[in-house]
Simulated assay, not measured.
Amino acid sequence: MTAISNHVGTIVKLNPDYTQMDAVYLTNKLLNLIGDAALDLPGDADPLTNLDLMVKAAQENGKIPDSQAARQILEAQLMDLATPTPSRINQLFWDKYQAGPRVATDWFFALSRANNYIQTRAIAKNVVFPAKTEYGDLEITINLSKPEKDPKDIAAAAHAAQSGYPACALCLQTEGYAGRTDFAARTNHRIIRFLLGGKTWGFQYSPYAYFNEHAIFLDAIHEPMVIDQSTFSNLLAIVSMFPTYFVGSNADLPIVGGSMLTHEHYQGGRHTFPMAKAPIETQVEISGHPHVFAGIVKWPMSVIRLVSADSDELINAAEHVRQVWNQYTDETVDVRAFVDGKPH
């Protein structure tokens, strides 16, 4: 089998908008991307290895330059053909959701892996191991999956005209974006739309996952992260919609790091972290919220766990804790609510 015919098979398998009748059409689409000389290029049964062969052929045929960015852009374009359009993806997802949330997420996750949006080969390079501690078995992850920048791309980006589109890597406008030397290729990227708090949000997977089914829930509007009472309402609404997933939010403070503060978003997935397994060390009461169980978790950092069957009371209790903590200062242990007038 040739690389072209193998990839046509992958396209027909993954994208219901195509059938074997489209083989000639798809062959010509692929040749346009990688060059006519690749028509009889020997293929590989593994779709991703086959993808590598086509990208290499495109470079040899002069269709793309020898740079990491160019290769990644072409990879995404080749896999875009195997990916249904955004409207079709959303239709299929919500049709499957009727059979159960997990049916829908299993399908979307499998597709996001198969079309190489989730970088499975890169993620496999990560080092993950447990560490036994007095707080339980912690999970240590060394992230080796994100590729280093190609010096050629760095040089090209320095001379390229600056673009403000898309505004950031979490914007809906990344869906289908070709990419450039300073912005990741997203041609094969798809986002599920849903309503959250009366607003349109998106659900996607992280291309470089830290844990199983690492999902990102993002505001359709590019606006800064803000933690307030609506955050807790949104988080509970998401886990109600996707009950096999956890969901959480990073802090909205630059000092914490590790998050994209310019775009409102949450992260979740099908994973149970050690902190969720840790026991309650000390039970506490939250004034005015008698139906909320609260306790200090046995953990190396300050963690309060709230539990209640009443979601509204749980939201109100969480907001109470947030407001108190935002103003809390204890200089004896170097806890400061503000530094130089800025939240800390």
Rank of each mutant, 00 (worst) to 15 (best):
A3D: 00
I4N: 08
H7A: 03
V12F: 06
K29W: 06
L31E: 07
L39W: 12
L41N: 01
P42R: 06
A57D: 03
Q59N: 15
D66A: 14
D66H: 11
D66V: 01
A69M: 03
E75S: 14
A76K: 06
A76S: 13
A76D: 01
L78Y: 07
M79E: 09
M79V: 03
N90T: 00
Q91H: 15
A99N: 09
R102F: 02
T105V: 08
D106M: 03
F109T: 01
R113I: 10
T120I: 11
N126Q: 08
P130R: 13
K132M: 04
T133E: 01
T133V: 03
Y135Q: 07
D137A: 12
I142W: 09
L144G: 08
K146N: 03
A156W: 01
Q162I: 11
L170R: 02
L172D: 04
R180H: 12
N188Y: 03
H189A: 06
W201R: 06
F203E: 00
S206D: 14
P207V: 03
I216Y: 05
A220H: 06
P224E: 00
D228F: 04
Y245F: 15
L253C: 07
G257R: 10
M260S: 10
G269F: 07
E281G: 14
V284T: 12
E285K: 15
V292C: 02
I296V: 13
V297F: 04
V297A: 03
P300F: 05
S302E: 10
I304K: 07
L314I: 03
A318G: 02
Y328K: 15
E331S: 13
E331M: 09
D334M: 09
V335H: 12
